[in-house]
Amino acid sequence: MAELDVNLIDGLAALVLLTAFLIVATGRMRTLVRVFALQSLALGLLAAAVAYSTGYWHIYIVAALTILLKALVIPRIIDRVMDRIQVANDVEPSVRTPSSLLIAGGLAILAYYVAEPLIQSGETITAGALALSLAVVLIGLFVMISRKKAITQVIGLLVMENGLFMAALSLSYGMPLIVELGVFFDIMVAVLIMGVFVFRINRTFDTLDTSFLRRLRD
C-alpha cells in the first residue's frame, strides 16, 4: 500500500473522529444533522480511498452507499421528521457541553489505551485504526446517553455505526459484500423503524424527550 494512501486514510479517519467531537460540541439540532452528514461523507471518502488503494471493487459500492444513504438520505429524512413534528432546535443535553467534551476526550484516550498492546506486538497500523474507530463508537454511545431527544439518540446510534464502518474499512478493508449489504439493509430498516417510533412517541406523548418515557419501572 502506498505511503500516500496510508496518509490519506489516516487523515480521513482523523476527520471522522473530529466530527464526532463536533457532534458532542454542537448545541443546535440542525447543525448536529449537518455535522453527522459531514462525518458520513468523510467516511465515504475513506471507503473510496481504501477501495482505491486495495483495488477491491466492492468497497466502491460501500463508499457509494455510505455517501448516498448516510450523507444524503438519512440527514434529509431526519430534517423532514424534524420539520413535520416541529422539534425545537435545542439539543437538550443532560451533560453540559464542556463536560461532554472532556468526557469525549477521555473516551479517546481510553480507546488508545485499549489498543496499546497491539502497538507493542508490532501491529501499529491496526492499533491506530482500532483506537480511532473505538473512540468514535464510544463517543456515539456517549451521545446517546447524554442527549435527551429521541432524534439525537438515533443520530448517536448512527455515529456508532460510522465508527463501526471505519473499523471495518481500516482494519480489514471492508467485509464480504453480502455482509456489508446486509448490514446496510439492517441499518436502513432500523432507522425507518425508529422513525416510525419517533412519530408514534411524539403523537402519544406529545414530546420527543425520552426522559418522559419512564412509566415502566420497578
Binding site: V137, M160, G163, L164, A167, A168, L171, S172, M175, V183
Partner: peptide, 11 residues
C-alpha cells in the same frame, strides 16, 4: 452495534 465491532475485530 458493539457486537458488530467485535465481529469486525475478529475478522
Amino acid at each position: 452495534t458493539l457486537a458488530l465491532l467485535g465481529t469486525i475485530l475478529l475478522y
